[in-house]
């Protein structure tokens, strides 16, 4: 099977809908079947990466705990858009570990490789 680069953009907050969980399932399934996956968080998607979430208190499963397992799917690092963080006054220090912050040059570089792009 030809390995393709698949870049998945998560751009919505974690709990208003199931987009975050769907993006994660999508990423793991593609990686499990041998594809090269980049996972990028931008816009409100950056809120998915906040450390120490307590989703159970609003009757939701904390799917964000699973980000730490993505290394076993060779999905690493997880990328986050610096500009989206700054616009929301979120510091990289507030995020889970294993996240690489990308400035505009970094973001552009990421999209230079030919790839499939999927947005959630």
């Amino acid at each position: 099977m030809t390995q393709r680069h698949i870049t998945i953009i998560a751009q919505q907050g974690p709990y208003a809908n199931s987009a975050g969980q769907d993006a994660l399932d999508f990423a793991m399934a593609m990686a499990n079947f041998g594809q090269h996956v980049n996972l990028v968080f931008m816009h409100d998607g950056v809120f998915q990466l906040l450390a120490n979430q307590h989703a159970e208190s609003i009757f939701r499963k904390d799917f964000t705990k699973c980000f730490a397992a993505l290394t076993y799917y060779d999905i690493e690092p997880i990328y986050v858009c610096q500009r989206s963080l700054a616009a929301r006054n979120v510091s990289p220090n507030d995020l889970i570990v294993g996240v690489e912050t990308l400035d505009e040059v970094g973001m552009q570089a990421l999209f230079k490789t030919p790839q499939h792009l999927v947005t959630f």
Partner: peptide, 20 residues
Amino acid sequence: FYLEFNTSPAIRALVKAMAL
């Protein structure tokens, strides 16, 4: 693995995590 990450490992992840 499940208790730590809230998800069961798919085969690829299980293999890599056990190897490590």
